[in-house]
C-alpha cells in the first residue's frame, strides 16, 4: 500500500528531474535518428525543403553507388592505417616509460601532451608541415630533393600519399590518449606477476607477451574500440588538410566527409545525406558488436 502510493506520489518529482534530459535526448538524439531513416527515402530541393518520397530503393541505390562504396573503402583504409599503428606506438611508448627512473614524469608529460590538441589544432600543425608551398618540409631543399613528391604535387595533393598523410596527423593527435590509457593499464598489472614469471626463467619479451599483454587486454580492447570509432567518424582532418581530395580520386573522402564535407558530391542533397548517415549508423553498430565479440574470447579480465 505504502509503496504503491509512493510510486504515484513521486511522479511529479521524477517528471521534474527527468523531463529536461528526456526532452533534449528525444529531440536531438532519437528523433533525428528516426527522421533520418525517413528522410533517407526522400528527395528535397537544394534548400532542403519540399521533400518528397522516392521510395526505399534510395537506400539500395546509395549502397550500390560508386561514391558510397569508395567512401566506405577509404574509411576502412583510414582505420586500418590509424588504429594498428596508433595502438602499437601507444603500447611501445607506455612500455618504454613504465619504469621508475628519474625524470620519467617529464617524458610521460611529453608523451601525453598531444591529448591537449583539438582536431583543428593538430591538423593545422600538420598542414604547416606538409603543405607544398608554405609548408616546412617543402622548404627544406635537401629533403624535397630526395622526395620530390613533397613539393610537386605535395604529400596532401598526391592521391598515393594523401590518406597516409592525414592518417599520420591523426595518429599523432590520438597518441597522447592511447599512451595515457595503456600506461594506466600497465600500472594495474601486479608486480608479483612479473617477478614470478622472471623466477620461472621468462625473458623480457616472453614476460611482455605472456604476462603483460594478456593482463592489459581489457585496456587494449577498450582503446581499439575507441580508436576505431574515432577513425570512422573522422572529419576535421579531412576538412582542413585535404577537403576530401585530391580530386578526381577523392582519396580522402570518408563516409563522414561524404555526408558533411563542403566539397562532397551530395552536399546539397538532404535525402542522400540522411541515407548515408543511417548507413554509417548501421556500420558503426555492426562494428562495435563485432569487436566485442571477436575480442571477447581472447580478453583476459582477471578473476
Amino acid at each position: 500500500m505504502a509503496i504503491k502510493s509512493r510510486r504515484l506520489r513521486e511522479i511529479p518529482l521524477a517528471f521534474a528531474m527527468l523531463g529536461p534530459s528526456l526532452l533534449v535526448l528525444l529531440t536531438f538524439v532519437l528523433y533525428p535518428l528516426g527522421k533520418a531513416v525517413w528522410l533517407g527515402q526522400q528527395t528535397c530541393d537544394v534548400q532542403g525543403k519540399n521533400c518528397k518520397s522516392v521510395g526505399w530503393g534510395q537506400y539500395t541505390n546509395v549502397i550500390k553507388s560508386d561514391q558510397f562504396q569508395h567512401a566506405l573503402w577509404v574509411t576502412v583504409k583510414f582505420a586500418m592505417i590509424t588504429v594498428p599503428i596508433g595502438l602499437v606506438l601507444g603500447v611501445g611508448l607506455a612500455v618504454l616509460a613504465d619504469k621508475q627512473l628519474r625524470g620519467m614524469r617529464f617524458f610521460r608529460t611529453i608523451f601525453s601532451s598531444t591529448i591537449a590538441t583539438s582536431v583543428a589544432v593538430a591538423s593545422l600543425m600538420w598542414l604547416f608541415l606538409l603543405q607544398p608551398s608554405v609548408g616546412v618540409l617543402a622548404n627544406l631543399s635537401w629533403l624535397h630533393n630526395i622526395f620530390p613528391v613533397i613539393k610537386e604535387p605535395g604529400l596532401l595533393n598526391d592521391s598515393g600519399t594523401a590518406l597516409w598523410s592525414v592518417g599520420i596527423s591523426s595518429i599523432w593527435a590520438n597518441l597522447g590518449f592511447t599512451f595515457i590509457l595503456v600506461t594506466a593499464g600497465l600500472q594495474s598489472v601486479p608486480k608479483e606477476m612479473h617477478e614470478s614469471a622472471y623466477v620461472d626463467g621468462a625473458g623480457g619479451w616472453m614476460r611482455f607477451t605472456n604476462v603483460t599483454l594478456p593482463l592489459i587486454s581489457p585496456t587494449l580492447l577498450f582503446t581499439t574500440v575507441v580508436l576505431t570509432s574515432r577513425a570512422f567518424q573522422a572529419y576535421g582532418e579531412m576538412d582542413l588538410l585535404t577537403n576530401g581530395g585530391p580530386i578526381p580520386q577523392d582519396s580522402t573522402t570518408t563516409v563522414t566527409y561524404l555526408i558533411y564535407g563542403s566539397s562532397s558530391i551530395i552536399k546539397n542533397n538532404d535525402g542522400l545525406q540522411a541515407a548515408v548517415a543511417v548507413l554509417l549508423f548501421v556500420i558503426l553498430l555492426a562494428l562495435s558488436a563485432l569487436q566485442f565479440r571477436g575480442f571477447g574470447k581472447r580478453v583476459h579480465y582477471g578473476s
Binding site: 518529482l13 528531474m17 535526448l25 536531438f28 532519437l30 533525428p32 558533411y260
Partner: peptide, 27 residues
C-alpha cells in the same frame, strides 16, 4: 525515486548511447 514506466524511460536513455553524433547532425 519510485515511479511508473521507470524501466522504459531508462531504456530510452540507454538507447541514446548507441547513436553517434555524426548520424544525428544532418537532422
Amino acid at each position: 525515486l519510485k515511479f511508473p514506466l521507470k524501466r522504459l524511460v531508462f531504456g530510452i536513455f540507454l538507447s541514446t548511447l548507441l547513436v553517434p553524433l555524426e548520424v544525428t547532425l544532418v537532422i
